[in-house]
Simulated assay, not measured.
Amino acid sequence: MKNLKIIVPIVFLLMMNCAAQNNIKEFDKIVYEAQTRGSLVQLVLEGHKLSYKTYQKEGTKKVTKKQLEEAKSIVNELNLEEISTLKAPTEKRITDGALHAEFTIKIGDKEYVSSTFDAGNPPKELKKLEDFLYSLSDIKE
């Protein structure tokens, strides 16, 4: 009986730990789009491939397993339900002083779209994701 009092809580904790690990969000696609009159930047991370496009060039790059794991980690840090309500730190895009940018993150049948922000100056919660996608591409911010 004494051993049962010890074993039951340990088993319960192990089950909870396994359940918590299953909450990792496996995204299907991340799309970053930034545009204004005469300028366009599009970065799409899907599977093991990053596609990038501007008015000057476009291409694709292979994404390593390590890079994909890093992307998943960054997405898991986000509260996807709230990215549409994040406040942009600046509003230069209103006067064409910066590109209008936004993220779309697709997980299963659900798409999470961020609020619009100035490219290069996203809400702090999205900065790591923007920097990461640019680092994978051949495009400079």
Rank of each mutant, 00 (worst) to 15 (best):
K65C: 04
K53T: 10
K49P: 00
L45K: 02
N22T: 11
I30Q: 03
Q35A: 06
R37W: 07
K49C: 05
G38K: 07
K61R: 15
Q67A: 14
G38R: 08
K57H: 12
K57I: 13
Q21N: 09
E58I: 08
E46C: 11
E58Q: 15
E58G: 12
Y55P: 01
V31I: 13
V31F: 00
E58T: 11
G59L: 08
Q35D: 11
T36F: 03
L68S: 10
N23M: 13
Q35N: 11
D28M: 07
E58C: 01
I30C: 04
N23C: 07
I24V: 15
K62T: 15
V63I: 15
K62W: 12
G59V: 09
N22P: 00
A19S: 13
L40S: 08
L43N: 01
N22G: 00
K66I: 08
Q56S: 14
Y52E: 13
K29P: 01
G38H: 06
N23A: 09
N22H: 09
K66H: 06
Q42W: 01
Q42V: 10
N23V: 03
A19F: 08
N23W: 02
K29I: 02
S51Q: 13
T54Y: 04
T60M: 11
H48N: 15
V31R: 02
G59R: 09
Y55R: 11
Q35H: 09
A20W: 09
V63R: 10
K53L: 14
K57P: 01
Y55H: 12
T54F: 03
G59D: 10
Q42N: 09
T64R: 05
L50T: 02
T60S: 13
K53Y: 13
V63F: 14
K61Y: 04
I24L: 08
S39K: 10
K29F: 01
L45F: 07
K29R: 12
I30H: 05
A20S: 10
Q56C: 04
K61I: 11
G47H: 08
F27T: 09
T60Y: 05
R37Q: 11
Q35V: 04
F27H: 07
N23S: 08
L50G: 01
A34S: 10
K65Y: 12
A20R: 03
T36H: 00
G59P: 14
